[in-house]
């Protein structure tokens, strides 16, 4: 019985010593001094590219607030149905509207044209040419597309707070058969914009 009491007492003393050491560990500190860095906060810029149709009210950011890619339906000139041998024109202005403080130049590159929802074999008679221009008002100019192959994929460098335009010419071949009359197809042109190093 006496041994048990002594062991309990020893355990109590040991616990007290350990607790005491833990509590007073700060008392071993020597001189020390801290200085603040005071470097503030660094913030990343936005990566914002604006797309605008020839109809200036039809505009969107290339990336929507939810992070998905935007789709911009382009207006054609002249408006209406496509007639064989008579081209229609469209265009999109691409603006680099970043808030970056330093240099921030981007490269806008057009992807391969694809035609969806093709009915009646219309796609086989459609030619789409793309060419870069200084502004959208140049787009309805046939001479802009002279000598430009349909396979050409414009790639333009756009400096911070600048813009460029890519114009499109859509032509229905004069040889289009009657089976294409009244048919429709949607032309999709992907656009990739990357930061230039």
């Amino acid at each position: 019985m006496r041994t048990t009491h002594m062991m309990k007492a020893a355990g109590l003393v040991l616990a007290a010593v350990i607790l005491g050491l833990l509590v007073v560990q700060g008392s071993y500190a020597l001189w020390n001094k801290q200085a603040s860095m005071a470097a503030g906060t660094v913030q990343a810029a936005d990566f914002r590219i604006s797309l605008t149709d020839t109809n200036a009210s039809n505009t969107t950011d290339m990336t929507l607030p939810n992070g998905t890619a935007a789709t911009l339906a382009l207006s054609t000139s002249p408006i209406g149905v496509l007639v064989p041998g008579k081209p229609a024109y469209a265009g999109v202005a691409i603006a680099n509207v970043t808030n970056a403080s330093g240099d921030f130049t981007v490269q806008a590159t057009m992807g391969t044209v694809s035609i969806q929802n093709d009915a009646g074999g219309l796609a086989g008679f459609l030619n789409v040419k793309a060419v870069a221009a200084a502004s959208l008002d140049k787009c309805p100019d046939a001479s802009l597309f002279t000598g430009v192959p349909t396979s050409a994929l414009p790639s333009e460098s756009i400096a911070k707070n600048s813009s460029t335009a890519i114009c499109f010419q859509v032509m229905l071949a004069p040889t289009a058969p009657a089976s294409t009359v009244g048919k429709s197809a949607s032309i999709s042109i992907p656009l990739l914009v990357t930061q230039k190093s």
Partner: peptide, 9 residues
């Protein structure tokens, strides 16, 4: 620095 916007690179 609070008004500066940094970009990759």
């Amino acid at each position: 620095i609070a008004a500066y916007k940094v970009v990759p690179g």
